[in-house]
Design a protein around this nucleic acid. Structure first.
Length: 269
DNA sequence: CACGAGACCTGTTCGC
DNA sequence: TGCGAACAGGTCTCGT
């Protein structure tokens, strides 16, 4: 499910509700959700700690504790929320923390792809991530230099978290449509004007996603409504909102990719 | 370095 | 209706 705007939305919500909460008990219900340390050490170390702050880096949730850092990646189907009162564990709950104040922190993850780390130094996990797309120091100039250093198709490059941290399959398709760039264009072939369009589109789309509190699919994540404003993602066979041409779907780097052949022509278009 | 295939998982939707 | 195939918001590892 979650890309940068969804993770940001969850982080803000958790930060407001979790700060100061003390962990009273730890119920790790699926051990393989834990990347490190061992389950026994995880439970022992976590017990009694207090949450201080929740933030986001790329698609990672960063939960600062009194003596450790808990990092959580939701991958495809993960969700993390605070629930009040008694929580009866549900089928796909992978971690449940009993908290002070009669609440629980629940990590629910149908497909079991999500991962949890408990570490002393968050850089152990976050160290390889590329820049934050919305950070002030990612200027057009810096972005242009990074694009030029690679020779890759735009879509897989934008999905590469060591190149840029936070874009996923939905937002990448939306970004390329706004920027009027074909997903298969090579990163070192763009004009200065095209680079600037791409840079602006990334910022615009992510900010719109955050403003709309992300996208909601199925019943995994509640709250956001960006899914009602997709321009191309999931809209193959429907018309492009800009020019009316039928939107197409193709595979790029094994990922389903949606684009407007008129707005986003390839090199022969 | 770039890229494709396969793995990791469960659930829903699609096509016959 | 039934059943298998295809597909889903992500990432890792291995081979070429």
């Amino acid at each position: 499910m979650p890309e940068l705007p969804e993770v940001e939305t969850i982080a803000r919500k958790l930060n407001a509700s979790l700060a100061g909460s003390r962990i009273l008990s730890v119920d790790l219900r699926w051990e393989r959700s834990l990347a490190e340390p061992s389950p026994a050490e995880f439970v022992r170390r976590l017990n009694g700690q207090t949450f201080e702050q929740v933030s986001r880096r790329g698609k990672f949730l960063h939960l600062s504790l009194s003596a450790d850092h808990m990092l959580i990646h939701l991958r495809m189907s993960g969700d993390l929320q605070v629930v009040s009162g008694v929580h009866l564990p549900e089928k796909h709950d992978r971690l449940v923390l009993d908290l002070s104040g009669d609440r629980c922190l629940v990590f629910n993850d149908t497909r079991k792809f999500g991962r949890i780390w408990l570490v002393k130094d968050p850089d152990q996990v976050l160290g390889k991530l590329g820049p934050e797309p919305l950070a002030d120091d990612l200027t057009v100039q810096v972005f242009q230099k990074r694009l030029g250093e690679r020779h890759r198709q735009l879509k897989p490059l934008l999905l590469d978290q060591t190149f840029l941290a936070g874009l996923g399959n939905i937002y990448t398709d939306e970004v390329l449509h706004i920027a009027k760039l074909h997903p298969c264009l090579l990163s070192d072939s763009l004009s200065e004007a095209q680079v600037e369009k791409l840079w602006l589109a990334i910022r615009d789309i992510l900010q719109e996603g955050i403003r709309r509190k992300g996208s909601s699919f199925d019943r995994v994540y509640r709250g956001g409504d960006f899914q009602n404003h997709f321009r191309v993602y999931g809209r193959a066979g429907l018309v492009c909102p800009v020019c009316g041409t039928t939107i197409e779907r193709m595979l790029v780097g094994q990922r389903s990719t949606h684009f407007c052949p008129n707005c986003q022509p390839g090199k022969d278009g």
